[in-house]
Nucleic acid binder design. Structure first.
Length: 323
DNA sequence: ACGCGTCAAGTACTC
DNA sequence: GAGTACTTGACGCGT
């Protein structure tokens, strides 16, 4: 059983390579009052910088054998802002985006976006749904422009609970029909740390035929009475059956005893190992997204730390085998 | 060079 | 119903 590891957005080992530099709307507005073109040029400059750093990160990933990566959701500053609708960033940045996509395809990398938590599909507020759809289309459009097929996914949460989980799950199904198919084809759903448990999300995924991303830290924070990872695993694996992709999990460790929801700098291998054993029973290769404050550094360390565990053979800086 | 307030968003909680 | 916490990397100002 082969396990690939990945990390989120930025590197702690590579200096000055942020893919998330921004221009806040406030700063943009102030500049635009005096000179609208100069303001937009600043946004363009930062965007090119982000995309260039993205490519540097992908090269860094290649050099270290990292095949799994999540893009920052902030690579296009103000890309979805209603006041910048006139800006054709997709057209202007097409060469840069194509170059990223080509590099990803050539090196058989798996990439995702994780739209921010204010993108909410199950919201009861029409305006929020509308903005969420804009954001989902934006992310799906970036992947499409990169020339990546629907194997490049968008990882989402179900959304709010609104004091009635089953009604809110049902609202997700209703709102789902309003999401453009370009986005729908890419969306995968993840269990969260407060509201929707693994079995809640699996129920929805099975209804809508979506793959599920299992976050084992969120499972620990939030799971139903008697709900176990062993029971969730086969359904989770099955949700990926028709995608041609490995099932994917997220792993992280709690920041502290007091603050169990926030992410620690590093990942305790003991938080992952029991799940590896579950996956070995199913003998299924899978991918692990490391969510830790120390980003790639934490991922490299986790892989090294796993060496101490029985059955683990480390094959690369971000690759292991469980025999 | 560093620290602190600010920014951006939606939800959930408190009073 | 208003205000605040949550989250997170980055900006920008003050020292």
């Amino acid at each position: 059983m082969i396990i690939r590891f990945g990390y989120v957005a930025m590197s702690m080992t590579m200096q000055n390579a942020s893919p998330s530099k921004t221009v806040t709307f406030k700063i943009y507005s102030k500049l635009a009052e005096k000179d609208p073109e100069a303001a937009l040029n600043k946004v363009r400059r930062v965007t090119r910088q982000n995309l260039n750093n993205c490519l540097r990160l992908l090269r860094h990933n290649k050099a270290h054998g990292v095949q799994v990566y999540r893009f920052s959701s902030k690579i296009i500053p103000l890309g979805t802002h209603p006041e910048l609708k006139h800006w054709d960033y997709m057209g202007e940045m097409e060469p840069e985006l194509k170059e990223l996509g080509q590099f990803i395809r050539e090196n058989k990398m798996r990439v995702t976006f994780h739209p921010d938590h204010f993108t909410v599909i199950n919201t009861p507020v029409a305006d929020v749904l509308e903005k969420s759809i804009v954001d989902l289309s934006h992310h799906a459009g970036l992947l499409k422009t990169m020339g990546l097929n629907t194997c490049a996914k968008l990882v989402m949460h179900v959304g709010g609970g609104y004091k009635d989980k089953s009604a809110s799950l049902e609202r997700f199904r209703q709102n789902w029909s309003q999401v453009p198919s370009e986005a729908r084809e890419r969306i995968t759903l993840e269990n969260d740390d407060k509201i929707y448990t693994g079995s809640d999300v699996l129920w929805l995924c099975e209804q809508l035929k979506l793959p599920m991303v299992l976050d084992i830290h969120h499972y620990r924070c939030n799971h139903g009475h008697g709900e176990t990872l062993s029971e969730l695993a086969p359904r989770f694996i099955n949700s990926w059956q028709e995608t041609g992709l490995n099932p994917k999990i997220h792993v992280s460790s709690p920041k502290s005893e007091k603050n169990r929801l926030s992410h620690h700098d590093y990942v305790d291998p003991g938080d992952l190992y029991p799940f590896l054993k579950i996956m070995r029973e199913h003998n299924r290769d899978f991918d692990v997204m490391v969510e830790a404050k120390q980003k790639d550094l934490a991922m490299f360390k986790l892989v090294q730390d796993l060496k101490a565990y029985p059955g683990i053979k480390v094959l690369g800086e971000a690759l292991a085998e469980f025999v």
